[in-house]
Amino acid sequence: MMPIDDVVLNFNPGSLMILNVVLAAIMLGIALDTSVDDFRRALTKPKAMAVGIAAQFLLLPAVTFLLTLILSPAPSVALGMILVACCPPGNISNVLTHRAGGDVALSVSMTAVSNVFAIFLMPLNLAFWGSRRPETDALLQSVNLNALEMVAQIALIIGVPFVLGIWAAQKFPEIAAKAQPWVKNGSLVALLIFIVAGVSGNASYFVDYIGVVLLAVFLHDTVALALGYFCGAVTGLNEYSRRAVSFEVGIRNAGLGLGLVFTFFDGLGGMAVVAGWWGIWDIIAGLALATIWSKRRARKAVPA
């Protein structure tokens, strides 16, 4: 069995285009359920927003880097973990926050703001933390990663549908309200089908190497969820807000990461397996935690 760093998953250009369309549809679904008021509402909870944004874009990549030093996985696995940590949250975080009895308004506004920040901060974080280890830096150098090119790609997948969705929601609110559940749920189902199909099409690789990434993804996802909750706790946020921040930090848009792996890293084995498995495990772990929290009512007494 060849080293995971030498494995390249099978993925044709047509499949990549489909994935990008699905990811854009996911962002459109988020935007159709987002309004300018969500950004205004974010300003009414500056503390909670600051905690969530800092935890996502400053602490999570740094903690992930430390985790790669502790676990010492193959370089492509380590870079895959860093890439996922740099991704923005997916809109499943809003669903999980609602199920957990958390602050859905905060979750929605934070998802919106975080995705805007991610257009610029995701490439910078990946380039910075990926270059901290010689092994992962070598992978970045081998593909001549261009931060501006990645910004353009992320802007195309996130920015364009996001702006169009918000515009449509403002201009045609009734149509947007009817279309939003179909776009949101349909795109999530399409992404899940895509990931499952991708895993099936590369089943031998996933079977051979899943053991390499199973523990890494399990620990990484647990750390991400715990980090969001811990940051909310130490900064004095109430339980209602902590649950929202926990999911905003812990639930990453691994589908976007997977698309970037195939766009910029030619389907590099360790990165693709991490992103693919994270996209599945993230939902399983998130649902389990949300179900546990739903049994205990969150208090809203302390302002966030």
Rank of each mutant, 00 (worst) to 15 (best):
D266K: 12
F162D: 02
D266V: 11
G267T: 02
L148Q: 13
L289V: 15
G236R: 13
L9P: 01
H220D: 12
L79R: 00
G186L: 03
T235F: 15
V63D: 07
L287V: 04
P13K: 10
V84A: 02
K47S: 06
A85K: 03
D221Q: 15
I26C: 07
T291P: 00
L66Q: 04
D221L: 14
G269D: 05
I92A: 15
P61M: 04
L192F: 12
S35A: 00
R252A: 13
L258I: 05
L60K: 02
A290F: 11
P123N: 06
L83E: 09
L258K: 07
A100T: 01
C86F: 05
Y209M: 08
G101R: 02
Y229M: 05
V8K: 15
G159W: 10
L148E: 04
D38R: 06
R242D: 06
D282W: 13
V160Q: 10
I166E: 11
F39K: 01
A48C: 04
G90A: 15
M110A: 13
N91K: 01
M1Y: 08
I292E: 03
A176F: 11
V245H: 10
N94M: 01
I18R: 12
Y240G: 03
G14L: 12
K178Y: 03
M150A: 11
V212M: 05
D137W: 01
I157V: 15
R296E: 05
I251W: 08
D103S: 15
T44I: 03
T235N: 10
P13M: 12
I30N: 13
L225I: 02
A55W: 06
R242V: 06
V160L: 15
M110S: 09
T34A: 09
S187F: 01
R99M: 11
D282K: 07
R297D: 10
A169R: 15
L121V: 12
V22M: 07
S109K: 05
M271D: 08
I53P: 00
L191R: 02
S107W: 09
